[in-house]
Design a protein around this nucleic acid. Sequence first.
DNA 1: TTGTATGCGTTATCAT
DNA 2: ATGATAACGCATACAA
Lengths: 330, 330
Amino acid sequence: MPTIYDVAKLSGLSKTTVSRVINNHSYVSEEKKNLVLKAMKELNYTPNPSARKLRGQVTTTIGVIVPRIVNPFFSYLVDSIEQVAYKNGYHVLIFQSNEDKEKELVFLNLLKTKQVDGIIMTSIENDWSIIEPFTESGPILLCNEYVNNANVPIVRLDQYKGAYIGVKHLLEKGHRKIGYCTGGLFAEEGKDKDRNQGYQKALQEAGIEPDPKWIFVNQHSIEDGKQVVKKILSMEDRPTAIFTGSDEIAGGMMIEAKECGLKIPNDLAIIGFDDQPLAQMLDPKLTTIRQPIDQMGIKAMETLIDMLNDSEVKVETFELPIELVVRSST
Amino acid sequence: MPTIYDVAKLSGLSKTTVSRVINNHSYVSEEKKNLVLKAMKELNYTPNPSARKLRGQVTTTIGVIVPRIVNPFFSYLVDSIEQVAYKNGYHVLIFQSNEDKEKELVFLNLLKTKQVDGIIMTSIENDWSIIEPFTESGPILLCNEYVNNANVPIVRLDQYKGAYIGVKHLLEKGHRKIGYCTGGLFAEEGKDKDRNQGYQKALQEAGIEPDPKWIFVNQHSIEDGKQVVKKILSMEDRPTAIFTGSDEIAGGMMIEAKECGLKIPNDLAIIGFDDQPLAQMLDPKLTTIRQPIDQMGIKAMETLIDMLNDSEVKVETFELPIELVVRSST
DNA sequence: TTGTATGCGTTATCAT
DNA sequence: ATGATAACGCATACAA
């Protein structure tokens, strides 16, 4: 590996001058500049990022923490973040937390040690009180998941409205017995809190009391979806429609429903969440909630870049719209 | 940010001793060791990776280059690589090349500059002659995609057999007019070369000459799948079965086929590739080729770790088996 | 068993 | 306009 010193030697100049050329500083004559450029090319020289980082410079690297990259929601989110980042000369390090608190902290530490300039968190495992101190080491932005007491910019979707319009849609279709799947718990705080409220609000407006036995918590996978249908079938009093937390769960439910001879949407209406590619491939095509994932990623990365360039960026929350896509499963 | 020096000061010892404790060296008395540990904890100290890298130590970071992370094949591959890596104390940097030569080189450069200890390439954009020099800077392993003249370990799937058994299956079902979709070109070399040969071989054994008009190149997306069906429908002489390059294309074909009133598998048999979750959610459920993605990722990462620990690892090619999953689309 | 001194590659400060 | 030098945080050769 050639170093800046090798370039200096070859071009017959000093390290300083070479450094000036690299960083586009002024006061370098055109002549010497070309000399340096030539030497750099000849040696196939690349500055050592570790050294630059150590020296306290920008790393032009940002980190994105996701729970699991195999979840299409997050892979698409990362993709859009990465596009914007690359255009602006940033690298993206992708970290999978696997919903593990320890791992999340390991990643946040990279901010402290100047491995990354900033971090976008798309999920939150630790208490905010634990995460908060890291904001002193560099900008942190919350994207998708959020906490109320965080003093950092937040880019998120209007999950409340997502659930609200979904359930509303089911009500308009004449359903009164509407079940609900959530990836979290059915609680006031924590994961999916906003969706929970949207669901309740819609029902409440229709004068309906949510039935606890139709509420399924901690649902994530295709397999979970299958189980939900089994559970429903074993009930005396069954829901006629289900609002799910993801297209995957909806897909799993469809598999099992067909297996059991249940007609969709007649016997059971299903509404998904995400509008993943598979939503239009399911049969019947899935009614679902579309989230502008790309826009969210773009807005998040752009905001982070603003924070990087100007430390006095206003702490704002951006709430992106969410929409209902009506297909044939409802 | 506390440094090793701060820890030394607080514990009343020297930087050296602290360093010894950090790196678990011998010849440190239990007493002083505890002193150091206590100071580290108190200061919430984390060693600065940039400094360590600069000093020439291991980075405990490896890079994985993928074309696009939103492609489930690659997100699952990355996931399994990451699991193994994390267990062995390695971080994984995920790089999206977007099939861009320049970007690929940017990433390979991280090896030269000691940003990563090694690299797993799951795709190859540049000529091998361009990539080859980078092997001097650290171990490179080819996973999934490969080139014949590469002098590095390769972990890949038996794509030839994948296509062969798929087409064979269609032949056994009585099909004689078998179309083919590929993500690359239908060529001797380059992307999907092995699959191409498997397809041809199976046909040839049945005494059938591939019909060029039923061969669709550069097919990737759901949309591509839809187009394929449209093209087929416009033909006088239509294929009765299609071997596709991915479950997504197969899914796209199914959407369009239903749209056009084509019955699957009666009017058109479809076979996918990958056995993604969606394969079992399609209706009819998709016959497809299952690839042991997890195993491939595990084997790749384990091999890379071997290379990292012992520079004299034998250069081998590991070919993993691939299997046919018969469902209802054929 | 512990400490001192040096250098990794880079950039910023201060001379010239 | 250019160069010498210090400093970033760490790990190691060498000394004690």
